[in-house]
Simulated scan of single mutants.
Amino acid sequence: SMAEEGEKKAVLETVQADGADEGCVTFVMHDEDHTLGNSLRYMIMKGVDVDFCGYTITHPSESKINFRIQTRGGIPATEPLRRGLNELTDVCQHVLNTFQVDLSIFITSQLQDINVSLGS
């Protein structure tokens, strides 16, 4: 069971000074690297309510990133983060769907070629 394996660490933590503006937050993402950091930063920077978005890899031996978002207009930093993750999920799903469709078309054409060459 989970209890025996010890407590599972959170995938996402926030780092914020006491009484700090919730429009300025550093999110700590565990078991992530440039793959998520770079693409998520790209998505979030498109938001008109975002002043700054960047990330750092804490240390090469650690698989975690510090992801900082600063917003304007009193928008909490969690909003562009949620939006960015949703948009990234949609893009990945679209790429996956397109790939699967193209793959099945390719396999079908290969099978037809094999059938033709076998004279069936």
Rank of each mutant, 00 (worst) to 15 (best):
L88G: 04
M29C: 15
T98E: 12
L36Y: 04
E79L: 13
N115W: 07
I75E: 06
T71D: 01
K64Q: 14
A20Y: 05
I75C: 06
I65P: 01
N66E: 14
Q112V: 11
T26W: 08
A17K: 12
D90P: 00
F52H: 10
T58G: 12
L36G: 08
E79F: 09
P60W: 09
E5T: 07
Q16D: 05
I69Q: 00
P76V: 04
S109Q: 14
F27E: 03
M45N: 07
I114K: 08
T26D: 01
V91W: 04
G84M: 06
G47N: 11
S1L: 13
T58R: 12
D102R: 11
E62G: 01
K8A: 15
P76E: 14
Q16F: 02
A77M: 01
P60Q: 04
C53G: 02
H30V: 12
D33M: 02
Y55H: 01
L40C: 04
Q16N: 05
A77H: 00
V50M: 00
Q93F: 05
M2W: 05
V48H: 04
T108G: 09
L36C: 06
S1V: 11
D18H: 07
M2P: 01
K8W: 08
E13M: 09
N115P: 02
N115K: 15
M29E: 08
N66K: 14
D21K: 11
I65Y: 04
Q93S: 12
P80D: 08
S109I: 07
I105E: 12
K46E: 06
E7N: 10
L85W: 03
K46M: 11
Q110L: 15
L12F: 07
L12C: 13
I114F: 09
G19R: 09
Q16R: 14
M29K: 08
N97G: 02
V15W: 06
D113Q: 14
S109Y: 07
L12W: 01
A10L: 14
E4V: 10
L103K: 07
E22F: 05
D49S: 11
Y42N: 10
D18G: 04
Q70K: 15
V11K: 15
Y42W: 10
K9V: 13
C92S: 07
S104H: 08
R83W: 02
L103D: 05
P76K: 00
I114N: 08
E4N: 11
I44Y: 03
